[in-house]
Simulated assay, not measured.
Amino acid sequence: MESQNSSTGQKNEADQTPRELPILDEKDKSQENSDHVPLPSTSQQEAETRHTLATEPFQPILKVLADLESDDPKFAFPAARLVGLYRRLWESCVSKHIDGQKLEQENMVLKEADTNLRQKRDGLQTRHDKQLSRLRFFEQALELSRERLVGVLDDWNHSSRLNLAGLSDNARER
């Protein structure tokens, strides 16, 4: 009876262990054979990269665990759980690392865009400043021309009054 329970427990452990230990050699081969498939989208590529970086270091360990399962199933199950925990931790680290790199790249793009926008702003500010200085120059030149024109008109008006006054004096004398 006890042997039935232990063999049943071993079967349960054996049944659970392969689910915990997926060996990805078959997936890797199928991905290598599918070279004619169109390029996946960036999110798909990112997911594949994450998956590859997260599982690749564990392939040798998974093979050893598969061998261990056939040799000593009682020891293989706890070892597989431990490897599974480390694998999840590693996946988390890989994910954070990839996210950090992605943010770094996006930050670089934003910095370049910021630099370009600052250069454009500086160029527009310089252009604006030049236009303002030209406007001030034209305003000063217009004011000077107006003053001269007013001076000429005053002189002409004054001399014409004198001429008119002289003509009227000449007309009275006659």
Rank of each mutant, 00 (worst) to 15 (best):
V94E: 00
L142Q: 08
R127S: 11
E69P: 11
L149A: 13
E106T: 04
A141H: 08
V152I: 06
N33D: 15
F138T: 05
V152C: 03
K120G: 00
V94T: 00
K120M: 04
L144C: 06
Q119H: 08
S43T: 11
R146P: 03
A113Q: 15
Q140S: 07
N157M: 07
P78L: 02
H128M: 10
E48L: 12
S95Y: 09
E46Y: 15
E104N: 11
A54T: 14
T126M: 09
G84Q: 14
L89T: 08
T42M: 14
E143M: 08
D155A: 12
L62V: 04
T42S: 14
R87N: 06
V83I: 05
D35K: 10
L149D: 10
H51F: 15
V94Y: 00
T115W: 07
D71Q: 13
W90Q: 04
P78E: 00
C93M: 10
A80I: 00
Q59N: 07
G84F: 05
P38M: 01
P73E: 03
S95E: 09
E48G: 06
T49Q: 11
H51P: 02
R136I: 08
A66L: 08
L153P: 03
A113P: 00
G123R: 10
L144F: 10
L65R: 00
S41L: 09
L162Q: 08
T115E: 15
A54S: 15
N116Y: 06
L103A: 12
L110T: 04
E46S: 14
D67P: 03
D114F: 08
E48W: 13
K120E: 11
L85N: 07
K120L: 04
I61G: 04
N163E: 09
L132I: 05
E91P: 03
S34L: 11
E104Y: 15
E56Q: 12
V150I: 15
Q31A: 13
E143A: 11
R127N: 08
D99T: 09
T49I: 05
K74W: 10
F75L: 15
G84M: 06
F58K: 00
L135S: 01
K130H: 14
P40G: 05
